[in-house]
Design a protein around this nucleic acid. Structure first.
Lengths: 124, 124
DNA sequence: ACGCTGCCTTGACGCCTGTCGAATCAGACA
DNA sequence: TGTCTGATTCGACAGGCGTCAAGGCAGCGT
């Protein structure tokens, strides 16, 4: 992981599956460089749970004040993990009044899932 | 080298989807602790490409001698990345004569994809 | 049996990451 | 305005990770 510019998540915001599944075609270096940080961000138990709590929340969003007490970690540490998820393009943050709310970006989740799909794309 | 005492990937070898999608139910800490290493292993561009090369290979397996020259890295480094993938339960290695062959474990790939699935199970 | 080739492991180095406490910033309320 | 609460940023530390050079081990060919 030597260096990544500022993480230009190219077309990850689009809804089209940018990439064929791992098992079908060899993923080019550029694609790997873009998607690997997203997997890396999911590669921590705390962040995986944070991700799940945000994604499965009622209304699709969660207040940080509900996230922090769910772990045995300090506020700054949770904030750091949320920043990591944010910079990986997995979640979005918005401040409304006193509290900050997080929500997931479904598009990139879909792309990651598509990349890992084992069956040929017949299902969709 | 296929024997590995550590690596207690609990039920990841089963074919049943052990976990509901991220967006449906909050993933428990134990599940996160088990699956996060797999995502972490995919969180490196080199390993993501290695994974893809192995998964998309003819016959489902590939020789290390075909993997190494595809990168600007030394043999030991590629070997180290392959070990990481192996210990994450993502691939399997087998020595046949002079060469070592790697193949993916589709079951865990399916589980990771299922975890990231965004749509409710309506699509399939 | 001997050496050759190919792959893996070990040891070492520097960078990155997870964690915390302290300080800082952004709103809300009196 | 001042103060209080909540979230982030800063500074620092230990541990983990990616990389390479050197060494070791397994098969194959002569």
């Amino acid at each position: 992981m030597s260096n990544q510019p500022p993480l230009t998540v190219v077309d990850l915001n689009g809804d089209a599956p940018c990439c064929a599944p791992l098992v079908q075609r060899r993923v080019p270096a550029e694609t790997a460089a873009v998607l690997a940080p997203a997997f890396k961000a999911l590669g921590d138990p705390v962040r995986l749970q944070l991700m799940s709590m945000i994604a499965s929340a009622e209304g699709g969003e969660v207040c940080v004040c509900d996230l922090t007490p769910a772990f045995d970690l300090t506020g700054p540490t949770i904030s750091h993990h949320l920043k990591t998820l944010r910079e990986a393009g997995l979640v979005d943050a918005e401040r409304r009044g006193t509290w900050v709310y997080y929500r997931v970006r479904p598009a990139i989740l879909r792309q990651l899932a598509a990349l890992l799909t084992v069956e040929p794309a017949a299902a969709r």
